[in-house]
Nucleic acid binder design. Sequence first.
DNA 1: ATGGTTGGTAGCCAA
Length: 266
Amino acid sequence: MRILTWNINSVRLRIDLLARLINEANPDVICLQETKVVDDAFPRKPLAALGYTHTMIAGQKSYNGVAILSRLPLIEGGVKDWCGRSDCRHVFATVAGGRGVEVHSLYIPAGGDVPDPALNEKFAHKLQFLDELNAWWPTASPAGRPVVLAGDFNIAPQEHDVWSHKQLLDVVSHTPIEVGKLAALRETRDWIDTARHFVPANQKLYSWWSYRAKDWQAADRGRRLDHIWITPDLGGALKSCTTLRAARGWEPKPSDHVPVIAELCV
DNA sequence: ATGGTTGGTAGCCAA
């Protein structure tokens, strides 16, 4: 089973790039973030024509929005709300058949610009969101069920998940407080970071490059914000994890995030 | 030190 995650930054604007991605990566399950569309206007028809007839979608006007698209039937799915908001950042569903893998598409708040929760409500929201996830995961989903947690976490946890560790220590996405909370989240289930399972910690690895750079490829000031985590019971099934760096240059109008794909023998 | 771009949607807000 090939599971892909992508912050698509508008599913309607990039439906043709999504078709290209499907053609190149051949995923069975697709987790999207920042779909930016209400459910009634989600482009279901072109995706059904490509074989993705099973969907779990939570969207709203203008902002956020997550989805799971699958070739295999989805069962027992739902939407999770955090921080008392219904802002469409988390959907989940179990993929029928095989080992019954539970897949989550997650969009953690970006957190604004100022890395101080007392001065910046968005950063406070991000930290509270992480605290609530940390409290929930130890009790979530039935024991014994394998889980894939995929999405835009908006945090680059390791030194070489950013272009300059020193220069980004005070930049939201790489500050010690949020990195610490993400480390706590990893401990809730002993999650395996699938990308780093295959790429050594001393090697740079990014999934996002800002639109603001004149030449993203030349500057290469990226961050690894997009992740696919799996529970340890899937460790033996993990065959590969690929970050599609080339997608940052796809025309027209690439997303600022690139897809990440994990391959599991389940 | 600062500003740089993009998407959704109609004013700026969010990333």
